[in-house]
Amino acid sequence: MFEARLVQSAILKKVLDAIKDLLTEATFECSDSGIQVQAMDNAHVSLVSLNLRSDGFDKYRCDRNLSMGMSIACMSKILRCAGSEDTVTLRALDNPENIVFIFESPNKEKLAEYEMKLINMDQEHLGIPETSYSCIVKMPSQEFSRICRDLSQFGESITFACSKEGIKFSASGDYGQATIKLAQTADADNEEEAVSVNMQEPVKLTFSCRYLNCFIKAGPLCAQVQLSMSNDVPLVCEYKIGDIGHIRYYLAPKIDD
């Protein structure tokens, strides 16, 4: 028996919004420690790594490890049926063919159940080595979203250049060039608004706007985003999910041909 309950279904809704543009289907690995998803987009350019710890749920029970293949589009449709104040419970048997989503209104007067068929999926797991990154930048997620959206108008990719002074984002295309520089904030009174740059070595990397604009869909999950970068390796773009876990996106860089 697998059962996981979240008082705030809104968290799960936001998680689905954060992955539905990248993934069509994904395997949800459920164990005693929680729920994990690792899945690449079809082009294998980006990867989503989602971790929801069991202790972050309001109720969690997982008698044996389960690998459940789910259609992200279908799951997203189901979660759209949850009221913003509803509680959500995920429930599956030990050898499940289906997973059930149960939404309960705060006054317990409305109970909705949605059963979704699971799908058989080929497992393709990537080993991601622990890496110490040359630059780690933390910044407001809204600011990062804004920068990605604004610069996407000027080119297909954005160059991230990080130095001691701060981080510079730039895009260029047929119409010209656009650059946005962010300096480290002087006072960290407001942690949510802060920009911090932890640099060991300067980094310059170029990434496709298409994927960045998918990642920023996770913005509503967390006020801050963390960008981990080293030259010539994939970017890690991480959003915390309250006290329950995190979503990390890996993005392969563009390189000079």
Partner: peptide
């Protein structure tokens, strides 16, 4: 001209 790499250029299947 820049070329898009894939994650397979960096990570191994496990």
């Amino acid at each position: 001209i820049t070329k898009q790499t894939t994650l397979m250029n960096f990570f191994k299947k496990s």
